[in-house]
Computed example of a mutant assay.
Amino acid sequence: MAERKVTVLARFKAKEGMEEQLKQAIMACVAPTRAEAGCINYDLHQLADDKGKLVLYENWRSKKDLEVHLEMPYLKELKAKAGELCSEPIEITLWEMVSKPV
């Protein structure tokens, strides 16, 4: 049986005054992540009325591909910076699609 696709929501909340630095730190991961073999999409969103709240919406071919991604050096660097840039821990949740895609 083929592995199921996995969707990830990663939520970030910047410390006051660190909004742009956090956004740029995450943006530095976008291009290399999109180039990874198992990445379907990797999109950064910012809350319209609160620039300190950001969400990565990611889709991966499989959980194994996601696990490979989590070991990439640029992602480890982002996690290391999170303590100085974020006011709370990064919230990462995994999702599976239950409706049929259109």
Rank of each mutant, 00 (worst) to 15 (best):
M1I: 10
A2F: 06
E3M: 03
R4F: 07
R4M: 09
V6F: 07
V6P: 00
V6I: 07
V6N: 06
V6A: 08
T7C: 05
T7W: 04
V8C: 08
A10G: 06
A10Y: 05
A10C: 08
R11H: 14
F12E: 12
A14S: 05
A14K: 01
K15W: 06
E16Q: 01
E16M: 01
E16G: 00
G17V: 06
M18Q: 14
M18N: 12
E20Q: 10
E20A: 12
E20N: 09
E20R: 01
E20P: 00
Q21P: 00
Q21G: 07
L22Y: 03
L22T: 04
K23V: 13
K23S: 14
K23I: 13
I26S: 05
I26L: 07
M27W: 05
A28V: 06
V30G: 07
V30Q: 08
A31I: 04
P32I: 07
T33S: 04
R34F: 04
E36K: 00
E36S: 03
E36Y: 02
E36G: 02
A37L: 07
A37W: 03
G38C: 05
C39E: 05
I40G: 09
I40N: 09
I40K: 04
N41Y: 13
N41G: 07
N41W: 08
N41H: 09
D43P: 00
L44P: 01
L44Q: 10
H45W: 06
H45L: 12
Q46C: 14
Q46A: 15
Q46N: 12
L47Y: 11
A48I: 08
D49W: 03
D49E: 15
D49Q: 11
D50K: 00
D50A: 04
D50M: 00
K51S: 13
G52F: 02
G52H: 03
G52K: 00
K53L: 15
L54Y: 04
V55D: 15
V55W: 10
E58L: 08
E58Q: 12
N59T: 08
N59S: 08
W60L: 06
R61C: 14
S62I: 03
K63Y: 12
K63G: 13
K63N: 14
K64Y: 13
L66N: 14
L66Q: 12
E67P: 00
E67F: 01
V68W: 03
V68A: 11
H69A: 10
H69G: 06
H69S: 09
E71S: 03
M72G: 10
M72S: 13
M72E: 15
Y74F: 15
Y74P: 04
Y74K: 07
Y74H: 13
K76D: 11
K76P: 02
E77C: 02
L78G: 03
L78E: 12
K79N: 14
K79L: 15
A80S: 14
A80W: 14
K81Y: 12
A82W: 07
G83R: 07
G83H: 09
E84S: 05
E84C: 04
L85V: 03
L85C: 05
C86F: 02
S87G: 11
S87F: 10
E91V: 03
E91H: 01
T93M: 04
T93G: 02
T93L: 04
T93V: 03
L94P: 01
W95K: 00
E96A: 10
E96G: 06
V98Q: 06
V98E: 09
S99G: 10
S99Q: 12
S99V: 11
K100V: 13
P101K: 04
V102Q: 13
V102N: 13
